[in-house]
């Protein structure tokens, strides 16, 4: 039963840092921490993939280093770059120096002139940081292959400087929205967790954790509203992030309960939940009133 106790303990710790995790996610995280392997998180937008890494960093009291991937990201943007301008200045300054060329060169290609990008930063930390590689599916295959090499032995070779080995193994969290199929090699190397839209109970707990000032009734109604929106055939379904924003907006407007008289005020701040024109058109005043009536 030790393992189960450890899982429950981790779950409670996460909640202290404001992240509500299912027990299965806690089990995965525990495995990530002691195997240690990268964790690949997939799921719809706004279900809290990035938050996992943040909570993990808070929990372990370490730095969170984030690498946001985008189409066309290359090794230089992700790993390191030489500070050319400073190098040039140094060369000019060294011209009057009497030392031989080899010494000068060693000087110019020293760590002083190295600009650390997130990946190099992560493997040169003293304390193992949490490395969040966000939206890995946006980067192209070439970069993914590059990353694979780094994730398997946590070392990086810089031609002018030599091989940099990780002083401590970072905890790696990768997130993906599956805009591109990731390679099997990468998937095999990672632990995997799929985050779904939360159940009613979980979402309610999240809202209560993040917005303790909201009344129990409002929280319950808001969550029910969001849950029924997800049942509809919308182009962009609201995630947890949207629900939280919406509750904040309702609180800001001084709404204490959702009722049919207050439909106007709900319509006013619906833009927090609904992000496309088609969906907005679908949610007429009558439709909203109907959903509110069932909450």
């Amino acid at each position: 039963m030790d393992r189960m106790n450890a899982i429950v303990a981790l779950q409670q710790q996460l909640q202290q840092y404001g992240y509500v995790a299912e027990r299965s996610l806690a089990a995965t995280l525990l495995l990530t921490l002691d195997m240690p392997r990268p964790l690949l998180l997939e799921g719809e937008a706004g279900v809290g993939k990035t938050e996992v890494a943040k909570a993990l960093a808070a929990l372990r009291d370490t730095r969170l280093i984030r690498l946001q991937c985008y189409e066309g990201i290359d090794a230089h943007a992700a790993m390191y770059e030489w500070n050319y301008q400073r190098q040039l200045l140094a060369i000019k300054a060294l011209e009057s120096d009497g030392r031989d060329a080899a010494h000068k060169e060693a000087d110019i290609f020293s760590e002083r002139f190295l600009l650390k990008r997130p990946l190099l930063d992560a493997i040169t930390c003293d304390e193992p940081p949490v490395l969040l590689i966000d939206e890995i599916d946006r980067a192209d295959e070439a970069f993914e292959a590059y990353l694979l090499e780094l994730l398997s032995d946590f070392q990086m070779s810089i031609p002018e400087l030599g091989t940099v080995r990780a002083q401590s193994r970072p905890f790696v969290v990768l997130t993906s929205n599956s805009t591109r199929e990731l390679s099997d090699a990468l998937r095999r190397r990672c632990l995997y967790h799929y985050l779904d839209y939360p159940s009613f109970e979980k979402e309610l707990l999240i809202v209560e954790t993040r917005h303790p000032q909201a009344s129990a009734k409002l929280a319950r109604q808001a969550v029910e509203f969001a849950q029924s929106l997800r049942q509809m055939d919308l182009r962009k379904k609201p995630g947890i992030a949207e629900t939280l924003d919406w509750v904040a907006a309702l609180l800001g407007l001084g709404v204490t309960t959702l009722d049919e008289e207050g439909t106007d005020r709900i319509m006013d701040c619906l833009s927090v939940l609904i992000k496309t024109r088609e969906d907005r058109a679908e949610l007429t005043r009558e439709a909203v009133a109907r959903i509110v009536a069932t909450c």
Partner: peptide, 27 residues
């Protein structure tokens, strides 16, 4: 070996994280 042999639920979660690689496998 890291625990969970006596707890099917824990074993399930751990193997799920380990062996799944994509959404349909997860389901």
């Amino acid at each position: 070996g890291r625990g969970g042999l006596l707890e099917p639920q824990v074993l399930r979660w751990q193997l799920k994280a380990l062996l799944c690689g994509r959404g349909d496998e997860w389901r």
